[in-house]
Design a protein around this nucleic acid. Sequence first.
DNA 1: CTGTTAGCGCCTTCAA
DNA 2: TTGAAGGCGCTAACAG
Lengths: 334, 334
Amino acid sequence: MARSSSRAGITDVARLAGVSLSTVSRAMNGNPSVDPALVERVRAAAVELGYIANPVARSLVLGRTQTIAVVIPDLANPTFQAILRGLSRAATADGYHVLVADSTEDLDAEHALARTTRLRTDGVVLCSPRMSEDDLGTLLPTLEPAVVINRGAQAASPVVTADYRSGLAEIIEHLTGLGHRRLVYLAGATRSVTHLARQEAIAAAVRATDGLEVAEVVGGVDFDSGTGAVDAVLASGATAVLAYNDLVAMGLLSGLAARGVRVPDDISVAGFDDIPFAAYTSPPLTTAAVPGVALGARAWDAMHAQLEGREATPLLTMTPSLVVRGSTGAPRAR
Amino acid sequence: MARSSSRAGITDVARLAGVSLSTVSRAMNGNPSVDPALVERVRAAAVELGYIANPVARSLVLGRTQTIAVVIPDLANPTFQAILRGLSRAATADGYHVLVADSTEDLDAEHALARTTRLRTDGVVLCSPRMSEDDLGTLLPTLEPAVVINRGAQAASPVVTADYRSGLAEIIEHLTGLGHRRLVYLAGATRSVTHLARQEAIAAAVRATDGLEVAEVVGGVDFDSGTGAVDAVLASGATAVLAYNDLVAMGLLSGLAARGVRVPDDISVAGFDDIPFAAYTSPPLTTAAVPGVALGARAWDAMHAQLEGREATPLLTMTPSLVVRGSTGAPRAR
DNA sequence: CTGTTAGCGCCTTCAA
DNA sequence: TTGAAGGCGCTAACAG
């Protein structure tokens, strides 16, 4: 009885077109083994009734939902926003839907969301997962197909990652090229994989560059951490700072300005990520641009390949590009 | 045969527990009419097999997916990101999932995405829909339950909106209080509903404030539009600028700095939205803070109410709050 | 080429 | 309180 007010079903179309359900199904799905005349009749009936096959019913019988899940540690993080955007647009272009899950940096939630969302999707993309290497290792096989962004190759699933090592290497090279020899690295998430990559870059640079010294100061990952690091940075006697990310760099810039320290005249500051506003700080921030949108798009490629039974590139590394702006310059002659 | 490697189904649990499918279903769903001893046996079997009811199958039979869709014009827009975040977190807290769809400012895509995503979700939230009032009017009934963010009351569905009118009114009041009498409004999306709201605020202020003049310059909605408006702003002879949004204000700030015009000494600049970086420009931006996260959370409330058959507030208006920072000050004595 | 018949995995009357 | 049976809406063998 609610029938009339409810959406038309395949049965209604079949009745109106005077054919069986199967024929409607076949016609709607472009099965070539249907008489063109019937196809036309079915199409007409479908249009008349505004019929669209129920995706949920199709999902059940076909075993696929045309939807993937993306688990993100923090929707407020500009880098993740860019990844989500690239991923979402690429998936949409291929006719897929995207379920987002914000784990709000909660390890347990991250694990739970990955498993839960997987049940109603065809695969899950873990964006910079925070869980331990062990957890990740045991979780991934249960998620298949899965794609991991920004975590070391797990072998289990394709990985798409930004090369933080080379990104920082480029920044350091830029600074040493300007004549800097005493740097300070404002470390953020020291448990993160990217932290290790940066330490490697630093170690390599120190080995390769005569007279180069890089001190390490542990701070946080946000604006306030940058502001709070001003004293430590100044005390270090460094002529240039490698901030953990752009947010930290911006906080530092702000704190330095408040102290009357001039950038880059008195000290150079480099960020990391190239978030949308890095170009608009004063001075504009020199940084390594992490291609978030591209990372997301490539992650989709890896997922899409798996969904279609093709082979996905096991490890795709994207290199951040150095963006030199006004916050870095030659050290002051002393 | 693939049975062993596949996820356990309700049948497996029933067999292991030595009961019927119905009992498993009832036990798993907390139906009180099941013998506690059996419940225990079923639970144990479920745990042993790692059984979790297939959400897709449940969706089909129950007619609900525990998922809602959010259609957003542009995932790169900080305000929408905040709304998505608030919405996502609120929905997750209530056990719902969120499907995001980025219409990339494409009117047709917006319409299509709303309809398509609705088919696999229990409702859709339209975030600042760009489509015409007419289209929106005919679309909404087909989407029910739906919630609209930042568009005039459509009566058809609950609306959650920020009061741009009062937001701008507060900014103007702040400026006139400082002594400004010649303002210029950098209009952005002139077809938008918020543009009209702002014009109302301006008209009301002009009526109420002796000697107040507000010129209007049409520009765009992004950073570059702000930079490009420098000449027009300067030519207007205004002592203060009402930028369409923070991005425009930041671009303007940047352009003015390049010209050697000092803010707020030579001219005051106010933005709108209070995006995350508004506090970090130089000088920090005075703006009206649009509560994006709260808007998203309230939109979820409205959706949740409808999903549970409760009555949702038909129109919820949130008032932006004035945030006075360094970019506004008294006009220069002349 | 088309219709009939089984399910996909689960929930829910209906009897017992 | 429990089990058997039907069906959510659709697709995919299997006959014809």
